[in-house]
């Protein structure tokens, strides 16, 4: 929709050109959320596209995803990933976990989805499960790093200071080489995630990671040295996810989300335990 209060668009070639930050500024990535709701407090859009950051950079250490990488580019990476990236099919699973259509992924960005910090953000699910590390560029000061799972602090809340940029997300190669199991539930077909759970298991050390997203206000990650027993897993979920942390919105009730979390967590445990 038209953002009627916007008075100017700035298109910097380098982020440093935005020397000072003021209320009413907004970074513009794909625009697919920004233009989907009234933004009456925004008067200046700062275009990130003009920075022309390379979208994806695979190295021996893993994968560097620019925050401006389009979702469609990540989706396409699924089939181009190195063969030992056993978790690569998760790119596609998670890209296909958007409520929005493929037309939106043509513009929507990975970073935009993470910075939105909505519980159902599938790029949060993906990068949190694959132990992603965010690189943040504060408006003043040195770049800092934080795990994706700690980046999102609540529904539509994260650690970014005003004007601070999510520059990129690094997925470490050891995570990309893991076995994984994926479970998702939606109240309508191909709809918005009510819960999205991803389990991974390290082929070398057997470490088991369960990442709970969409059903909770923020991503929750449970780490086990080995695949736990069913009762241990259930107890760990109860300890880490109090009932108040389950989301209540039109896409699901807290009780159903808790119920599905238990159910799918157990399925993931069984699948990766074999």
């Amino acid at each position: 929709m038209d953002l009627h209060t916007v008075e100017q668009v700035r298109r910097p070639a380098r982020a440093e050109e935005i020397a000072s930050w003021e209320a009413g500024f907004a970074w513009l990535a794909g625009g697919t959320w920004l233009f989907s709701e009234p933004q009456v407090d925004v008067h200046t859009l700062i275009d990130l596209e003009s920075l022309q950051w390379p979208s994806l950079h695979a190295t021996a250490d893993g994968l560097e995803i620019a925050s401006t990488c389009k979702v469609v580019e990540l989706d396409r990476l699924t089939h181009k990933a190195p063969s030992d990236w056993k978790a690569a099919p998760l790119f596609r699973e998670c890209c296909r976990s958007f409520l929005s259509s493929f037309k939106i992924w043509n513009e929507a960005t990975v970073g935009g989805n993470i910075v939105m910090s909505l519980p159902a953000g599938p790029m949060i699910s993906l990068t949190a499960a694959l132990e992603g590390i965010c690189t943040l560029w504060p408006r003043d000061g040195q770049p800092r790093q934080i795990a994706v799972v700690d980046f999102v602090t609540g529904e539509h809340q994260n650690v970014l200071a005003p004007g601070e940029l999510l520059r990129s997300i690094h997925l470490p190669v050891h995570a990309l080489r893991k076995k994984f199991a994926f479970r998702r539930f939606t109240l309508t077909h191909l709809g918005r995630s009510e819960v999205l759970l991803i389990g991974t298991r390290c082929p070398e050390h057997g470490e088991f990671l369960l990442t709970i997203t969409a059903g909770t206000l923020r991503p929750i990650q449970l780490t086990f040295a080995a695949v736990p027993a069913a009762t241990e897993l259930k107890r760990a979920i109860d300890d880490a996810v109090p009932f108040s942390l389950y989301l209540d919105d039109p896409h699901g009730s807290p009780a159903h989300r808790q119920h599905l979390t238990y159910y799918f967590a157990e399925q993931i445990r069984a699948e990766l335990g074999n």
Binding site: M1, F35, I104
Partner: peptide, 24 residues
């Protein structure tokens, strides 16, 4: 919808379909 949900505003941009209500 003017919010990218219904697709009635779909146009092609260089041949690729996009929701024009979300496109700056």
């Amino acid at each position: 919808c003017d919010a990218g949900d219904c697709g009635a505003c779909t146009v092609w941009l260089d041949g690729k379909p996009v929701h024009s209500c979300l496109f700056p």
